[in-house]
Nucleic acid binder design. Structure first.
Lengths: 242, 242
DNA sequence: TAGTGGTCTAGACCACGTA
DNA sequence: ACGTGGTCTAGACCACTAA
């Protein structure tokens, strides 16, 4: 059972996607939403704030909540979404080849927290996978999962979906991630696994994912063929303090 | 004069940056914030929600608001921030060379709205600039600004800061943008202006920026040397509906 | 003038964590 | 048992847009 505001959010989002509320038109006013859903105004406003955050609407004072063009799901880096979830949304055939699985690896602690120059390492499960989209190997994913959080990660979780395993089987609450995108020349491993030559560049997405209690538990390096890489973003301007 | 919640947000953010509230410690509780600032709880909660959105804190039920590592300002694509603002934050010497300025250009309407196959064009001011960071030309910016919103854009605005001109001199309220990042091989123009050879790839950021009343008014194509490109992001996981 | 969103309040009840 | 955050409410006042 979700919140009232989340239910209203989902309902409005769905109606926007299905063009019950069309692009360029206004949603019902806040007072009308109160009556429609039997909620208080602040509750409806929370739902609307979520839609505005995610680029579905623009609120205009004195007028209403205008439905605007919103970002579609771009392939692989917007938000924290697993491949299985994305493939489902995009109707793409994905295959997932685990070519390395090391339950007893270790990783420098600095990968998880850029605190001091800690030289210690932490025990992790290391996984390397190739994502095959529509028959072409496009992405290498290297995942390192802390054994202190997930002691025994079954290989089948890597072959299916790590997120589904973490959330549905272990009950972990994944909360946020920091990501960094850079561009790098292809390595030998990239050339071999992605079938590209050394003139190809690679878009590298490094991320650290944390749980609701703020424990970082997963470090991921995702390596995309440059010519297949695409990232979409929606951003609101913050008042600049000068 | 800002909101109460914005004032509290700014004050807390500043205290986190200055390590009055240190990484790994908890902010005062919501009830304490009410007393400290003389506000109601929902007002304080709005400030905290903003800090959580921007990756400053993680709220943990039953415990409090934990200060976490937050994204620094990465160079050029996080949020909607102008170069002048970024250069100020990062203490980098930037120069800005306007090498093309065309007050009577036109652009296909489709660049602004991916509606139908509209074949009309719209009048724009076209600007091409090279950004020189620490003595190296790293970025080409191509801006197209709708003449219906900004009829007479002075060249000096392009030489200084477009955003400062829009916001401070024209009083335009810049609200949101959609961006797309892709990678492309260097063109002849890239090679000439950025002093790279044809083995270099280019990170291309295309964006459409809109005002508070949801009018799209600026289309930008920002072309970065791949080896200098870096983008940092903070994302929270949304509940997935299946 | 009437309707819209923007902000703030004081209070209530719940769920979770700690002791 | 107590303090924490999570949610919701009913009402108030303000600023902006439109007719």
């Amino acid at each position: 059972m979700l919140n009232k505001s989340a239910l209203v959010y989902d309902d409005l989002k769905q109606k926007i996607d299905q063009e019950v509320y069309k692009l360029g038109t206004y949603l019902p006013s806040e007072n009308q939403l109160c009556a429609l859903y039997g909620i208080s105004r602040e509750t409806g406003r929370k739902a609307l704030a979520g839609l505005a955050d995610n680029g579905y609407i623009q609120k205009i004072r004195g007028k209403g909540s205008l439905v605007i063009e919103h970002r579609q799901y771009a392939f692989p880096v917007s938000g924290i979404v697993s491949y299985k979830e994305l493939a489902h949304k995009l109707n793409v055939t994905t295959t997932n080849i685990v070519y390395e699985f090391e339950p007893q690896a270790s990783l420098p602690y600095g990968s998880f927290a850029s605190l001091g120059g800690e030289q210690t390492t932490v025990p992790v499960t290391a996984i390397k996978r190739v994502r095959v989209l529509n028959g072409e190997p496009d992405i290498i994913d290297k995942d390192y999962i802390l054994k202190s959080v997930v002691p025994n990660l079954p290989r089948r979780a890597a072959e299916d979906s790590l997120y589904a395993y973490f959330e549905q089987e272990l009950g972990l609450a994944i909360s946020y991630a920091t990501k960094e995108i850079t561009m790098e020349p292809a390595t030998a491993e990239d050339r071999e696994r992605l079938h590209v030559d050394d003139s190809m560049w690679i878009a590298v997405v490094r991320s650290v994912t944390s749980l609701e209690d703020a424990r970082a538990f997963q470090y991921t390096e995702s390596r995309h063929r440059a010519d297949k890489f695409r990232f979409r973003d929606f951003a609101r301007r913050q008042p600049q303090p000068f």
